[in-house]
Design a protein around this nucleic acid. Structure first.
Length: 256
DNA sequence: ATGCCCGGAACGTCCGGA
């Protein structure tokens, strides 16, 4: 079972590229972030024609997450529990062939300090709470998405310039480790322990892509029951080089 | 010098992204 994550930076603007990639990579599940549309604007018909069912938690203009799957998605949860007042569409759960899939779009948090920085940390505490509940089910579970966190300096092209950014700050990294220490495996890092320049995002600005000035912020975290089945993981950099590319590229895992 | 780019909303230019 192949599961992939991709922050597409508008699903409408990226539709031809996503369809091309689905046809080439043939994942069983693809989770999308920053779809930037409401549920009724999501191109479900086009994905259905490509063999994928759509589960959408959308929002006008900003955020928005979706799960594309070849098999039915069951036991759906829309939104990260823990704050009824939170209106941002950043969390979507469902079971696919017995594997619990979470598609998440963690807040950026810049500038720090500030309201957005506070929101990021509060959101991450809610994520830790929810992940604890899901881990107790002792089923294969994959937290996949744009975490907006570089776990270590090895995940940053220029660590000194990024040390005060919300993606790299010690508080962000500590919360990410707290999450991992509940029992998750960072799939890409587990299979590539010494690799550097293992990036998933390159800014549109300043020639970041041709200079390979990237960050690793898109992750797939596996519960023990999922990690036991881990047989492969990778970053597919090809779509970042396409015309009209997203600034993120797909990351995938293979569960045997 | 967080500006360069990009998408959405909306129709001029700002917001958000990371």
């Amino acid at each position: 079972m192949r599961i992939a994550t991709w922050n597409v930076n508008s699903v409408k603007a990226r539709l031809p590229l996503v369809l091309d990639w689905l046809g080439a990579a043939k994942p069983d599940v693809l989770v999308l972030q920053e779809i930037k549309c409401q549920d009724d604007g999501f191109p479900a018909f086009e994905f259905e024609a490509a063999g994928y069912q759509s589960l959408v938690f959308g929002q006008k203009a900003y955020n928005g997450v979706a799960i594309l799957a070849r098999a039915p998605v069951k036991d759906v949860v829309r939104g990260l529990p823990g704050d009824e007042a939170d209106t941002q569409a950043r969390w979507l759960e469902g079971d696919v062939n017995g594997v619990r899939i979470v598609c998440l779009y963690l807040p950026n948090g810049n500038p720090a300090p500030g309201e957005k920085w506070d929101y990021k940390r509060t959101w991450m505490r809610r994520m830790v709470e929810r992940a604890t509940v899901l881990l107790a089910r002792e089923q294969p579970l994959v937290l996949a998405g744009d975490f907006n966190i570089c776990p270590t300096d090895a995940d940053v092209y220029d660590p000194p310039n990024w040390q005060n950014d919300a993606l790299c700050r010690p508080e962000s990294r500590a919360l990410f480790r707290e999450l991992c220490h509940l029992g998750f495996t960072d799939a890409l890092r587990a299979l590539n322990p010494a690799a550097d320049r293992l990036f998933t995002f390159w800014d549109y600005q300043a020639g970041a892509w041709p200079k390979d000035n990237g960050l690793r912020i898109d992750h797939l975290l596996l519960s023990p029951q999922a990690a036991d089945r881990l047989s492969g993981a990778g970053v597919d950099k090809t779509p970042r080089g396409w015309e009209k590319a997203s600034d993120h590229t797909p990351v995938w895992v293979e569960l045997g």
